[in-house]
């Protein structure tokens, strides 16, 4: 991995990149503890839980997958929900392509590490190709390692418990989704945040109203229609130059 070899050369910046990458890794690793625990409480084995962290490696999709399984929604709906949530990674990869310009043989590995955190860091340190590559791979690897360690500790810990409900793990699931949602509602401009809140509330209300009529998991999938409708509506209404 060439990006690691000469990371001392550019001093201050590379140090701040590595410190940030480590901090982000530890924070998401702590979060992975709860994923591991929730996954086992949802009925997956320790090995199945670990496979998700090793190969899917995109938190929101993993949480959604085990959430749907745990709620009795079944495998097909779990897969579709995970894929819909993962669609944003395609967009990340599209924006990262010209920044990281990975060689052909680097693409498979670069793709695996393409997640919220590594993308944010690569785009933040975009002064040079070298810096953004360093930020991307340092963050991606750091999160990958800590995410998998956290998953293992969480799933092993939870599998030692008899009834996860006693520990309030069923309440940890919506809290986890809310923690993933929160930055998307609060980090944009005022008008952008208002749009996000509108979509979030409309989707939540629609899903709740559908609970009695559809099998578990489907209300969440139907709520995606709110995002589709809003994006068609707002794309027409707003000028194409607007950032999002």
């Amino acid at each position: 991995m060439g990006w690691m070899r000469n990371h001392r050369k550019s001093g201050g910046e590379s140090q701040s990149i590595h410190t940030n990458a480590l901090g982000i890794g530890i924070a998401t690793g702590a979060y992975a503890l709860s994923f591991g625990a929730i996954s086992v409480a949802s009925g997956l084995s320790v090995l199945q839980t670990q496979s998700l962290s090793l190969f899917m490696f995109t938190g929101a999709s993993q949480f959604a997958f085990v959430g749907v399984i745990g709620a009795g929604g079944g495998a097909v709906i779990a897969v579709v929900t995970a894929l819909l949530l993962g669609a944003r990674n395609s967009l990340y990869a599209l924006s990262l392509g010209p920044v990281l310009t990975p060689k052909k043989k680097e693409v498979p590995f670069t793709a695996l590490l393409t997640i919220d955190e590594s993308t944010a860091m690569a785009l933040r340190y975009n002064a040079s190709r070298k810096a953004s590559r360093r930020a991307f791979f340092a963050t991606g690897l750091s999160v990958y390692v800590f995410w998998n360690i956290g998953t293992a500790l969480g799933s092993l810990g939870a599998s030692a418990l008899s009834d996860p409900g006693v520990l309030g793990l069923d309440a940890a699931i919506p809290a986890g989704f809310l923690a993933l949602l929160w930055p998307r509602l609060t980090s944009g401009s005022g008008s952008e945040n208002r749009k996000m809140w509108t979509v979030a509330v409309a989707s939540a209300v629609l899903a709740m109203m559908l609970i009695p009529f559809l099998r578990p998991g489907l209300p969440v999938l139907f709520s995606a229609l709110v995002a589709v409708a809003a994006s068609l509506l707002w794309s027409k209404a707003s000028p194409p130059s607007e950032e999002n």
Binding site: A60, L85, R88, P174, F177, A200, M208, P216, V220
Partner: peptide, 27 residues
């Protein structure tokens, strides 16, 4: 761009609601 940005918001908000209030198909 809009749709890939809004999809997670929609799905995560719905997941919060459903995981809080649903027990199988009951509210």
């Amino acid at each position: 761009r809009r749709m890939t940005g809004l999809l997670p918001v929609s799905l995560l908000a719905a997941l919060v609601a459903v995981q809080t209030f649903a027990s199988d198909q009951a509210f």
